[in-house]
Design a protein around this nucleic acid. Structure first.
Length: 920
RNA sequence: GCCGAAGUGGUGGAAUGGUAGACACGAGGGACUUAAAAUCCCUUGCUCAUUGCGAGCGUGUGGGUUCAAGUCCCACCUUCGGUACCA
């Protein structure tokens, strides 16, 4: 039979589906291996060509591991809550659940065509109430927990309540929004509402007024990772700053553990580095400055350079600082109000573009340097950020470039306290200097002086050494409909959780998906959105809520008693291999790790890190094609001739271009504008230009995997995507080479057939040469699989197939193991051949062939011989010859003598099985 | 600015410090065919030579280590990704 991929692929996909061969169960007799893809958001555009890249890689690895004897968990599902479906709903009135369902079906259809080995019985969508019940459940646990810094883990808030009742805040070392001190009696005298307010300061999920990224285009707030260059990632709308009451997750409490955990995972260095920078650990000191003439007010700052404290010449507060209204002098009030109003209302975009522009205003107040009693003016400037440290700084212009620019601009003093720089031109920012002009720390190194100052401030009771993180708490509310409702109702203005046994709180039906006329979130439209008469929360959870713990749910997806069973978790533990884009480095991959660590603290998840090994598939860029229109005409000139004319490049649909040659007829029919197009050809062809750009509809460079499956089959598509290059590298999507892979698949099929496409496999014993071809391939494929170097593995298959074809080898003992090796890459064709070879069982459970070194033994080796490093001749020696035995034969050789001439060799280097180098 | 990754033919890309360019695309030539598709064979880094042998140069640039460098070290250039007043 000829290779008919359509028939073969349809046949096996049906059989796999019906037999449930990819269904996975806990099996204690086998080691587990958990392979996970970042699940997709089912957008209306369908699966794009970048998705399969990672999915195919993980699929290959899953199949390989299964053949290696592992019990492989390889699930798939959908991240189904999200903005596009809701935006669409606002425009059309179509319920997002319906659009989502349609999109999911389309995705599933596309995925099925590629022949993945997912265990679909575990599939779920994050918008299923069965699933988001557990997202809500986790939220309640977060609400009912606080972070105990001494135990270094999350603890029940009830324990904190007990502590408050017994000792007040004395001995409390917990992550909180504001430091609090009160006695046990004070606690007992608080009313319910006051107590709730105090607890809110400690909860891991808390409600607070906070400056947020408000996106009016989307009608919601966004997390920091959802804003890029002042614009929303989804939709590209401008983002402004706004003070709003929001649900927030105290992710920052886990900063140190998130940082430390990176040491234990096998991720790429670059990804770890991105997370490290995002977490942004810095060591320094917290120091309290007294304000001149005001006993009750202090100005707290964080600095990484306590050693420069004698160089402080002014203090700066962020425009949002609460101290501003308390300390501003009457004379300065007008100027301060004006500045603060301006600074607070700037949009993110403005902030971005005005970075490094020096602005600020003097408050009229002075702080006192605790070490020398100097009066230091307190300024306000937007270069100091609210939300990092204390929102206030001690400015040391001589040794910080930002303070320097500020001091120069406002003509403030610049005092040198680290020797060796030239502070007349720029700040001297070294951390290896020696202190000067600094009284008792003169002559000390920066490091020593820092320690000394920290000891002093501790002694004086005005500060301590501390560690500060850039990582912010995550805003968890969205003023949106299509998300998980909060399991929260309000009583006397304070939030309370809905009992766990009444979960899930299902998303109600509403008539319209827009915010209300009064600007309330869409859920305010829901009828009876109450709990025992109390109003339920109008906000919903953000996109990352559902994706933060989904990998745990796959372990036990249908459990209605628990998130997942202990048994399932202890077997599957965590994800061994996670495949997805690096764009999630500062979002999903942080939130997920936080989520998992919290569940670990609760004793639910038995591993602290969720993703052991992570592979980032590179981004797939588009490869656009261009035609060149001669300006003012409807004439198009081929690439090579375009420089002779005045032309405008125009994007042309890549689907009517093959190997950069334009199908001119198809071009004329493409759009009415081009109906009468004329062409100036080169060599009878129209050659298009090309460029690598982002893949987008408007650039006509989008290619759909379905078309390629239709034209070449899934096996060819799978291998081609892997053959493009290393999965981790970004690369343009280019179908120019797919024919080569298709040819190879056909050749592979032919190994099992004669010229007339009749089955032709012999039971003869293979020769040693044939075994050698096979075992060389077994070894290479195994090494490449372990390294995720699938492109070179495919090259090895091509070489092997060519060699066996040349040798006319059709021996079962060679072809059968080869089939197994290749089944991970091309599951359909190998499954078909496997059954033709007479096997009843599926090839997915065939054992991976064992490499046998004995076939690779050689009796001799051909050495390249180089003279002073330049390769000249090749000589063959028996394998077991030593250098001593080789040398005389070598020197007696005519070619060697020719090259040596009358020179005598200084040294002869023989590297066994590599090279001989003669140095003269 | 800072952090990270990467620069190899016309193209995608191979090379544990040891014959650079595997494998594939494209291109050129040929076979088969009435023709096309499909298939098969040869050539294909650059320059010179080409009657044959060949010779020289080549992995972003400039240095260095080494018998030997695409690979290691130093400096620089370029591109891409992350981040951006984080005290």
């Amino acid at each position: 039979m000829e290779y008919n991929y359509r028939e073969i692929e349809a046949k096996w996909q049906k059989i796999w589906k019906e037999s449930g061969i990819y269904k996975t169960e806990i099996d204690n007799s086998k080691p587990k291996y958990y392979v996970l893809d970042m699940f997709p958001y089912p957008s209306g555009a369908g699966l794009h060509v970048g998705h399969p890249l990672g999915y195919i890689a993980s699929d290959i690895f899953s199949r390989y591991k299964r053949q290696k004897g592992f019990n492989v968990l390889h699930p798939m599902g959908y991240d189904a809550f999200g903005l596009p479906a809701e935006q669409y709903a606002i425009q059309t009135g179509q319920h997002p659940a319906i659009t989502t369902e349609q999109n999911v079906n389309r995705y599933r259809e596309q995925l099925d065509k590629i022949g993945f080995c997912y265990d679909w019985s575990r599939e779920f969508k994050t918008c299923n109430p069965d699933y988001y019940k557990w997202t809500q459940w986790t939220f309640i646990q977060l609400f009912n927990s606080y972070y105990d810094n001494t135990a270094d883990k999350a603890m029940p808030i009830a324990q904190l309540v007990e502590h408050f009742a017994a000792q007040g805040t004395d001995g409390v070392n917990a992550a909180c929004t504001d430091e609090m001190t009160f006695t046990a009696d004070a606690w007992k005298n608080m009313n319910e509402q006051e107590k709730q307010k105090v607890l809110m300061n400690y909860r891991l999920a808390y409600l607070a007024d906070t400056w947020v990224n408000w996106c009016s285009g989307l009608g919601t707030v966004l997390a920091n990772d959802e804003v890029v260059n002042g614009l929303s990632v989804r939709g590209g709308f401008p983002v402004e700053r706004k003070l709003m009451k929001q649900w927030i997750l105290r992710v920052s409490a886990y900063a140190e553990r998130l940082l430390k955990g990176l040491e234990k995972v096998e991720w790429t260095d670059s990804l770890k580095e991105i997370q490290r920078n995002w977490i942004g650990r810095s060591e320094g000191a917290f120091i309290r400055f007294q304000l001149d003439g005001q006993q009750e007010q202090t100005l707290d700052i964080f600095t990484t350079r306590p050693d420069t404290i004698f160089g402080v010449s002014f203090m700066v507060l962020c425009p949002e600082h609460e101290l501003i209204e308390k300390i501003t002098t009457p004379e300065q009030k007008a100027a301060v109000d004006e500045y603060v109003t301006w600074a607070r209302n700037r949009s993110e975009t403005e902030r971005q573009s005005e970075v490094r522009k020096v602005t600020g205003v003097f408050t009229g107040a002075y702080a006192i340097n605790p070490f020398n009693g100097d009066k230091i003016p307190v300024w306000i400037s937007a270069y100091v950020l609210q939300g990092y440290g204390t929102g206030g700084i001690m400015a040391v212009p001589a040794h910080d470039s930002r303070d320097y620019a500020f001091a120069k601009h406002f003509n403030l003093p610049i005092r040198e306290v680290i020797a060796g720089g030239d502070i007349s031109t720029e700040a001297f920012e070294t951390k290896d200097g020696i202190c000067c002009n600094s009284e008792f720390i003169n002559g000390m190194s920066v490091k020593e002086a820092g320690k000394c100052i920290i000891n002093k401030v501790v002694e004086m009771g005005i500060g301590y050494g501390t560690v500060n993180y850039r990582l912010r708490d995550a805003i968890f509310s969205r003023q949106r409909y299509w998300g998980e409702p909060f399991p929260i109702y309000y009583k006397d203005g304070m939030p309370y959780t809905i009992p766990v046994d009444e979960l899930p709180v299902e998303l109600p039906e509403i008539s319209e998906f827009k915010p209300t006329e009064t600007g309330e979130p869409p859920l305010a439209r829901a009828e009876n959105w109450t709990y025992n008469g109390y109003q339920k929360e109008y906000n919903t959870m953000p996109g990352f809520a559902g994706s933060s713990g989904y990998y745990l749910r796959y372990m036990d997806p249908h459990n209605d008693k628990a998130y997942f069973s202990k048994e399932a978790n202890e077997y599957w533990r965590n994800v061994d291999l996670y495949v997805g884009g690096a764009e999630h480095a500062t979002g999903h991959l942080i939130y997920s790790r936080f989520w998992n660590k919290f569940l670990f603290d609760l004793g639910l998840s038995c591993e602290e890190e969720p993703f052991k090994k992570l592979i980032n598939q590179g981004m797939i860029q588009g490869r656009s094609n261009f035609v060149y229109r001669i300006i003012g005409t409807n004439k198009y000139v081929s690439l090579g001739l375009k420089d002779q004319y005045d032309v405008t490049p125009i994007h042309v649909d890549v689907n009517i271009v093959k190997n950069d040659v334009l199908d001119t007829e198809a071009f004329k029919n493409w759009m009415p504008d081009f109906k009468d197009a004329e062409f100036i050809l080169e060599d009878g062809q129209y050659i298009c230009g090309w460029e690598v750009e982002k893949m987008s509809k408007s650039k006509y460079n989008v290619q759909n995997p379905d078309d390629l499956v239709e034209k070449y089959g899934a096996d060819t598509l799978r291998m081609y995507e892997m053959f493009l290059g290393p999965i981790e590298m970004a690369k343009p999507w280019d179908t120019n080479g797919i024919e080569g892979v298709f040819r190879f698949v056909k050749k592979f099929w032919k190994l099992f057939h004669n010229q007339n496409f009749e089955w032709n496999v012999s039971d003869e014993e293979p020769t040693k040469e044939e075994y050698k071809i096979l075992h060389k391939t077994i070894k290479k494929i195994e090494e490449d699989n372990e390294k995720f170097s699938f492109n070179t593995a495919i090259s090895a298959f091509m070489i092997c197939t060519n060699e066996l074809g040349d040798a006319k080898c059709n021996k079962r003992k060679i072809l059968e193991p080869l089939c197994v090796l290749m089944s991970a890459y091309a599951p359909h064709i190998t499954e078909e051949l496997w059954s033709l070879l007479g096997h009843q069982d599926s090839i997915v459970d065939a054992a991976y062939p064992v490499y046998n070194d004995s076939y690779m033994q050689e009796s001799e080796f051909t050495y390249p011989v180089s003279f002073n490093g330049k390769m000249r001749v090749k000589l063959t020696f028996p394998m077991d010859y030593t250098q001593k035995e080789i040398e005389p034969i070598l020197l007696a050789n005519a070619d060697v003598q020719k090259w040596l001439g009358d020179k005598t060799p200084k040294k002869i280097i023989v590297v066994p099985k590599r090279i001989i180098n003669i140095v003269f």
